[in-house]
């Protein structure tokens, strides 16, 4: 087993354990902190794919900014264990249906791995995650979707400001 494979499995185990901890932690703050660890594990995967830019941006944006806001909100509303409302039967049923569908989706995906094998990115050899190729790709081939998504962000920002002003 090469060093990259060892790292891959270690990171995957780390990511999965952290993700499970996000779900089973009773305290929402602990959940958020475990989620941050998940983001770190994913960034590690990006680095294994030689996508350093994506790895760092993942940390800056998700772990550094969005999770801080999450933490903010949870710290301020101060969720207590006993104040958690009792879930209704219908809600639980819906949860089971949604979770089950997602599980089927995942199983279907795993079954297709044979087809996907030829298309996966090569470990440590890919260049698309580096800053130059990524920039070139974004501003040449994908410039229209890129600009459209920026317009989307702008409208979201304007909307947030308007809601905030009320």
């Amino acid at each position: 087993m090469s060093i990259i494979q060892i790292l891959f499995f270690a990171l995957s185990a780390f990511a999965i354990i952290s993700a499970v901890m996000v779900l089973i932690s009773k305290n929402p703050i602990h959940s958020v902190l475990w989620l941050i660890l998940v983001f770190f594990a994913i960034s590690g995967h990006y680095i294994l794919l030689n996508a350093q830019f994506l790895a760092i941006v993942n940390i800056i944006v998700y772990a550094g900014a969005i999770m801080v806001l999450f933490l903010f909100v949870i710290m301020l509303i101060n969720v207590k264990k006993d104040s958690e409302p009792q879930k209704q039967f219908l809600v639980k049923l819906l949860g089971v249906v949604a979770g089950g569908s997602f599980l089927t989706l995942l199983v279907a995906l795993v079954k297709q791995t044979g087809q996907l094998q030829g298309r996966t990115l090569l470990m440590k050899d890919g260049v698309i995650g580096l800053i130059h190729p990524l920039g070139k790709a974004l501003f040449n081939e994908y410039v229209v979707p890129f600009e459209i998504s920026s317009v989307l962000f702008l409208s979201a920002m304007v909307g947030a400001v308007i809601i905030g002003k009320k």
């Binding site: 760092i56 940390i59 800056i60 772990a63 900014a65």
Partner: peptide, 9 residues
């Protein structure tokens, strides 16, 4: 960017 990420941590 690395510095930025660490600072945000």
């Amino acid at each position: 960017l690395y510095i930025f990420a660490v600072v945000s941590m």
